[in-house]
Simulated scan of single mutants.
Amino acid sequence: MSGDFAAHYNHPGVAMVASSGDEGFTVPNAPAVYGNVVAVGGTSLTRSGNPRGWAESAWQKATSGCSAWVAKPAWQADPNCPGRTVADVSAVADPKTGPAVYETTIEAGWAVIGGTSASSPFIAGVIALAGHHGQYPDASRLYTNAAQLNDTVGGSNVQGEDCGGDYLCTAVPGYDAPTGNGTPNGLAAF
């Protein structure tokens, strides 16, 4: 799994971004699990009276997990996974609170979309806006600049079983697998 297709996601000067998946806490998906890819998880948004105007939690279906096949990258230091942990960063993915898009081909009009298939291109767009796409041979930039992201705390992606609140399936302060290092707070981290 780690070697056959990973080379196809290695393009110096191009940020490779992939959705973590929509299966909750499980075995990480390729290509998000590859060490040279930015793995994007997902969150849910709720209106809030805080200065940001939104509270954010882990989306219950965003895939996260610990790889038994892909080695842990040097820039990833989480303690409970000896292999590559997914995700690195996140954006809203809950179809109930996702981004609005205007559909023109099938049924014209606005629709709210979701899934990490929505959060991943959102992050790709943020990387493009920041203008540093050449600095993404992997996701290490998002670990170095983690303090400049919105840290997502709360929520879990466990479907029916309990993982004891572990960071591999629960959004905790700092890095956690469902939401990575957090969500965009402007462009500074990117």
Rank of each mutant, 00 (worst) to 15 (best):
N150S: 07
T144Y: 04
G98V: 12
A177G: 09
T26A: 12
A118P: 04
D4S: 15
A68M: 08
S64Q: 01
S20Y: 04
P79Q: 00
N150K: 08
G83H: 12
Y167G: 02
T152C: 08
G65S: 09
V101H: 06
F25G: 10
P178R: 01
N10A: 13
N29C: 13
D151R: 12
V37H: 08
S48W: 08
K72C: 01
I106Q: 11
S44I: 09
D78A: 11
A188I: 14
A15P: 02
T170I: 14
V92T: 07
P137I: 15
V89D: 00
R141L: 14
Y136W: 10
V14L: 14
P178H: 02
I106P: 00
W69G: 06
T97E: 03
G186F: 13
W75I: 06
G98D: 04
D94N: 14
G98W: 02
A93C: 07
S120Q: 04
T144W: 04
T170S: 15
S120L: 05
N10P: 11
N10S: 13
N185G: 12
G35L: 06
T116I: 14
G114A: 09
V172D: 00
K96M: 10
V14M: 13
I113N: 01
G114Y: 07
Y175A: 08
G65A: 09
V14I: 15
V101C: 12
F190H: 03
V27F: 04
T179C: 10
N185C: 12
G160V: 05
I106E: 09
G155N: 03
C169H: 00
Q135D: 14
Y102C: 14
A74I: 10
A147P: 00
G160H: 03
D88L: 07
A74L: 08
E23T: 15
P31E: 11
W75E: 03
V27W: 03
G53Y: 06
W59V: 00
V14Q: 11
D166N: 15
I123T: 04
T63F: 00
S90N: 01
V89W: 01
S2P: 15
D22G: 11
A6D: 14
A55K: 09
N145Y: 07
N50R: 08
V40G: 00
A146C: 06
A177T: 13
P73Q: 04
S67D: 03
G49M: 05
W59S: 00
S44M: 05
A62Q: 04
S19T: 15
D4F: 15
G155W: 02
L142T: 06
V37R: 05
